[in-house]
């Protein structure tokens, strides 16, 4: 059975406060912070993109796993902000960790759940014996149109997981998915910023799919919310995962450790995976973890994991998510625009 043998997360150091963005648009920062449950968001440096974030997360995962990168047979990078429309981020990541050339790699896109889709693909390859190790990464430097509600939350970060059969720190006991064609959020080819259906992104998109995949999982495994030590739900803001947890019968304590978005914003493909990384940073052998992602368009992937003894031996090699959350440097809106390349220089 495939399990996690190593993981790594990366969150850029720059932050912009919701108050600072609200100041520009004459909005009420308090209302936004309360409405979204997000107080600040991470911003990538001018020299960072989804590929560098994925590469950094991947390098950390390889270091944690302590494996020879030549034994990695597949790398999938999920992102909605791949630096190139055509030219794989995954190949850059492979080169940067010293993997390949005898391996497969591809970029994935399914809004915010492309990373977990990659996890399922790698699970299949590992379980079938086609590869020894494979890595799935979710990484994004998402953009919100200036002045749009998304601008308060669209942030940057990523996490990668190496799956294999031996030396696992957590086994994946089951996975389910729930997919429909739902126009809640999209970005057309060649367009700089995504568009969305406003309040339509809620009930029929995030909640329907997250609940759909999770309920399916509970039925499949016969587990109850109380059986889990931790739960991670996709977190486009602080409110949605908190509400969906309550709707499904999970308690706030179960989602607390993996709820990162209030502090760094929505890292899109990185969000539920960074949440899982934060959980693994402190989880104990025997702990059960539920993770359900969500990607607009729309779908959810759910996973149940069981933490193994090996985690204690590797714990010191982790660069902990909450330490990265705490390590920050605030920038103002002008620097934010310059950093994001939004100021027209030529």
């Amino acid at each position: 059975m495939a399990g996690i043998v190593g993981y790594g997360a990366y969150v850029p150091m720059y932050r912009i406060k919701v108050d600072e963005i609200a100041r520009i648009w004459h909005e009420s920062a308090d209302q936004i912070k309360h409405g979204l449950g997000v107080k600040e968001k991470s911003v990538p440096g001018r020299d960072e993109d989804a590929a560098t974030i994925a590469a950094e997360a991947a390098r950390r995962a390889v270091f944690y796993a302590g494996i020879d990168p030549q034994e990695i047979g597949a790398i999938y990078v999920g992102s909605e902000s791949h630096p190139y429309a055509v030219k794989p981020t995954a190949a850059t990541v492979a080169q940067a960790i010293g993997a390949g050339p005898n391996m497969t790699a591809a970029d994935l896109e399914f809004a915010c759940k492309a990373g977990t889709a990659g996890l399922q693909m790698v699970m299949g390859l590992v379980d079938s014996g086609m590869i020894k190790y494979g890595m799935a990464i979710g990484s994004d430097t998402s953009q919100g149109k200036p002045g749009d509600a998304l601008e308060y939350t669209a942030s940057a970060g990523g996490a990668g997981f190496i799956l294999g059969k031996d030396g696992t720190i957590a086994d994946i006991l089951a996975t389910t998915s729930y997919t429909t064609d739902t126009p809640d959020f999209w970005r057309r080819e060649g367009i700089g910023f995504p568009s969305h259906g406003g309040r339509f992104t809620g009930e029929h998109a995030y909640f329907k799919h997250t609940i759909g995949a999770t309920k399916q999982m509970l039925e499949k495994t016969g587990m109850k919310p109380a059986d889990f030590d931790y739960a991670v739900f996709h977190q486009p803001n602080g409110k949605f995962p908190t509400n969906v947890a309550a709707m499904l019968g999970f308690k706030p304590e179960q989602i607390k450790q993996g709820l990162i978005t209030p502090s760094i914003g929505n890292t899109y493909s990185g969000a539920s995976m960074i949440g899982l990384a934060a959980v693994l940073d402190e989880a104990k052998p025997g702990n059960k973890v539920l993770v359900t992602s969500f990607g607009s368009g729309a779908g959810s992937d759910s996973f149940v994991l069981e933490v193994k003894d090996e985690i204690e031996r590797k714990r010191s090699k982790a660069r902990k998510v909450w330490d990265m959350v705490a390590k920050k440097m605030y920038i103002d809106y002008a620097i934010y625009l310059k950093t994001r390349g939004t100021i027209k220089l030529k």
Binding site: D47, D49, T52, A55, P83, T92
Partner: peptide
């Protein structure tokens, strides 16, 4: 070391890591 973008060749060219 970290891996970062070094420079980008305009709007259509390559990104050099």
């Amino acid at each position: 070391t970290v891996l970062r973008k070094m420079y980008v060749d305009g709007d259509e060219g390559l990104i050099h890591y």
